Computed example of a mutant assay.
Amino acid sequence: MFLGTHYPRLDDKGRLTLPAKFRDELAGGLMVTKGQDHCLYVFPRAEFEQMARKVAEAPFTNDAVRAYQRYLFAGTDEQRPDGQGRVLIAPELRRYAGLTKECVVVGAFTRMEIWDAAAWQTYLEEHEDGYATAREEVIPGVF
C-alpha cells in the first residue's frame, strides 16, 4: 500500500530514489507509465499486469480502446531498483511529466505518482477547495 508524500530529487542521470518505505513492495520490479494530469504512475509489476490484462481484454475493434492500449503500453517502462533504491526515469516519461530536479512522490494506495514539485503544488492549489465535495461523491456517508 502506497501512502504519504515524499520529496526525492532526480539526479543528473535521470534517476529517482524511491522512498525507503516503498522499496520492499517494488523490489520485484515496477512499471512506470504515463498517468493522468501529467504525472507518472508507478505500479508494482504484479499490480500492473492485472490492470494490463483488463485493458488488453477490451474489444480492440473500438477506436478509443485501441488508442488507450497504444498510449498505455507504448508509454510504459519496466524498471528494477538498484542497490540504492534508484530507478531511471526514461527521457520520454520525464518530458511527459515535465520533471525537473525537484520531484514529489505521492502514495495513491495501489500505485505511486511522480510529479514535478511545481506541478504538484499547482495541482493542490487548483483542487484543494473541491476536496470536501469530491469526498462526498467518492465515499458518501463515510465521514
Rank of each mutant, 00 (worst) to 15 (best):
V42F: 02
A117C: 11
W115N: 06
V105R: 00
F73H: 07
D82N: 03
F73Y: 10
E125D: 15
A20M: 04
T110W: 01
Q121F: 08
L18V: 04
V138Q: 08
D37N: 14
Q84P: 00
E102T: 03
I89H: 08
C39F: 04
Y7G: 11
L10E: 02
Q50V: 10
L30S: 06
A46P: 01
P59F: 09
A117G: 11
F60A: 13
R70Y: 04
A27K: 10
V55D: 04
E57I: 05
V42D: 00
P91M: 09
A46F: 00
I139N: 14
A67Y: 11
D12M: 07
A134E: 10
V55C: 07
V55A: 11
V104L: 08
R135Q: 10
G29M: 06
G130C: 12
Y96L: 10
P44T: 07
F143H: 14
R95C: 03
R66L: 08
L16Q: 11
L10Q: 06
P8A: 12
G107H: 03
D63R: 09
G14P: 02
T100V: 04
G4R: 05
Q50D: 09
E78R: 13
T76G: 07
A64Q: 09
T33C: 05
R111E: 13
G107E: 05
I114P: 00
D37V: 14
K21M: 00
I139Y: 15
G29W: 03
T122V: 13
Q79D: 06
R66S: 12
Y96P: 08
G75N: 03
A97W: 09
G35K: 00
A132S: 12
R80S: 11
M51N: 06
G28I: 06
E128A: 08
P91G: 05
A108N: 01
T110Q: 07
A119E: 10
T100H: 10
L72Q: 11
F2W: 01
K21C: 02
R70T: 03
Q36F: 10
K13D: 01
R66T: 08
E57T: 03
T110A: 00
D82P: 01
L72D: 04
E136R: 13
M1H: 04
Y123F: 15
R95Q: 13
V32Q: 13
R23T: 09
K54N: 13
L93H: 03
E102H: 11
Q121K: 12
L26E: 07
A117F: 06
T122K: 15
G75L: 03
Q50Y: 05
Y71S: 12
V142L: 15
F143S: 13
E92C: 06
Q121S: 15
Y131G: 14
V105H: 01
R53F: 01
G28E: 03
P140H: 14
E126A: 15
F43G: 00
T133A: 15
V32C: 12
F73S: 08
K21E: 05
E102W: 00
Y7H: 14
G4N: 04
E113L: 07
D82M: 04
I89G: 07
P59M: 05
A117T: 05
G141T: 07
D11H: 05
V105E: 02
H127R: 12
E126T: 13
A119H: 10
K54E: 11
T110L: 02
